[in-house]
């Protein structure tokens, strides 16, 4: 399964990159969202998949899945939510102020940098 996941993650990263290189601000944000999904799955896969039961001691199993990647991802999920929200509002406000979400038109001019 790890091999399959490696390719799934690769495809997620690829789409994310392609989106981020586009001109529309919204697509860039969607791209960052995809990128964080890919990263979370990457961390989880790195720790090894299905190596034991869920990391709850009550299960009294002989082996548990590695809890550290999970803890890291939990933190990452919430942070990426915060970042996405921030980006969104940034896009929304710049749209309001500047009337466009085309990145090519949002370039700073000479003397305005």
């Amino acid at each position: 399964m790890e091999i399959v996941m490696a390719f799934v993650i690769g495809i997620l990263f690829m789409s994310a990159t392609y989106l981020m290189l586009s001109k529309s601000l919204l697509r860039i944000i969607v791209g960052t969202g995809l990128l964080s999904h890919g990263a979370h799955l990457l961390i989880l896969t790195m720790g090894g998949l299905k190596r034991g039961t869920v990391p709850l001691l009550d299960e009294k199993a002989s082996a548990y899945t590695d809890p550290i990647p999970q803890a890291l991802i939990l933190t990452a999920i919430v942070i990426s939510f915060g970042v996405t929200a921030f980006f969104l509002v940034l896009a929304y406000r710049s749209y309001q102020e500047l009337g466009t979400d085309n990145m090519e038109r949002l370039r700073g001019t000479e003397g305005n940098d």
Binding site: A6, G10, M14, L42
Partner: peptide, 12 residues
């Protein structure tokens, strides 16, 4: 983007 995807896959 294909490059990024491929690199990430290789790393994984």
């Amino acid at each position: 983007s294909i490059g990024v995807g491929a690199i990430v896959t290789v790393i994984a």
